[in-house]
Design a protein around this nucleic acid. Structure first.
Length: 301
DNA sequence: AAACCAACCTGACTGC
DNA sequence: TGCAGTCAGGTTGGTT
């Protein structure tokens, strides 16, 4: 379930279960889930076993679990990315293996007892990895009111639009320097993080902006409107538990989100635009699809 | 430096 | 029933 709202739903579900919990066992079923881990599966298991989780933190679509420090060691964490089909599930200890289970952490929580944290991932684009925490590039606090640190793998990722320290004027200034299509810029995680194909299409539809307009050609007013719509759609989707089209995209308890019912453009090819009634179109774009209303979202001649 | 594309995977669905 | 082709929520690393 992998754009900002879905990852935040997972983070929020994970946090109370893992904060303060001790990892008493790690099982790597499939090393393809560790493509971003610097060592083998056995190395991952050995490093993590016996450690205590301090929090569950997110930036954009990345999620990480900082570990309680060991004296003399640099700050470390387990960093997770769900890719296209990754899930983090909370299960009872000893629960049967999930269909696409790749890694299992058995944890012991001082208040909640034993629990299994299962990483399942059909397409294996997601991953878990051991990583060190480094100071945030801007020196300010990381996500979730945590300390000013991010995993090295996340250092290049911009703050997301729901981060209180996201700088709107820096974002708008970046747009004026980009000659590529506005949708491509929205999907560039080094400019603004957390937005994927669904919410890019939804925000552009809401702001009445054609996805292929050159970013730099947007007026300051249009850029402000777009950012406001990005925030609005992310917040609404989060409130609805995220977007689920099938059983792949679920929270830590395996439940789907409801936002698919509220989509205005994404996946609605041929249906009438909810605003003007003109049929929505799907256009191939960057090896994926854009959905929009050609009447409401005019491309300049 | 910025922009683009192929590659990494599995599974569901469509049309012949 | 089978088989080929298409599509799916993302990121990276290499090439222009």
């Amino acid at each position: 379930m992998p754009e900002l709202p879905e990852v935040e739903v997972v983070r929020a579900g994970l946090a109370p279960a893992v904060t303060g919990a001790r990892v008493c066992g790690v099982t790597v079923h499939d090393e393809r889930a560790l493509t971003r881990h610097p060592g083998t599966g056995a190395d991952f298991e050995a490093r993590l076993t016996g450690r205590t989780i301090r929090a569950a933190v997110r930036r954009g679509k990345f999620l990480w679990l900082p570990l309680v420090p060991v004296p003399g060691e640099e700050p470390v964490c387990v960093v997770a990315h769900l890719g296209m089909s990754g899930q983090l599930l909370l299960r009872s200890t000893g629960a049967p293996q999930e269909r696409h289970e790749r890694v299992r952490l058995d944890v012991q929580h001082p208040d909640h007892g034993e629990l299994a944290v299962v990483f399942a991932d059909q397409r294996t684009f997601g991953s878990l990895a051991w990583d060190t925490l480094v100071p945030t590039p801007d020196g300010a606090a990381g996500a979730g009111g945590d300390d000013p640190a991010v995993p090295t793998q996340v250092a290049h990722i911009a703050r997301d639009p729901l981060d209180p320290l996201f700088d709107d004027s820096v974002f708008r200034a970046a747009l004026t320097r980009k000659r590529s299509a506005i949708k491509r810029v929205l999907l560039d995680q080094t400019v603004v993080s957390g937005i994927g194909n669904i919410y890019a299409d939804e925000a552009l539809w809401a702001a009445r902006i054609h996805p292929e307009i050159v970013a730099a050609s947007l007026s300051s007013r249009a850029a402000r409107r777009l950012l406001a719509e990005v925030r609005d759609v992310l917040a609404k989707a989060l409130a609805e538990g995220g977007t689920s089209f099938d059983a792949q995209y679920v929270n830590v308890n395996g439940q789907a989100g409801y936002f698919a019912h509220s989509l205005n453009a994404y996946g609605r090819t041929g249906e009438p635009c909810p605003r003007c009634g003109h049929p929505l179109v799907r256009v191939s774009f960057t090896n994926r699809s854009s959905h929009f209303c050609a009447r409401c979202q005019k491309r300049p001649e």
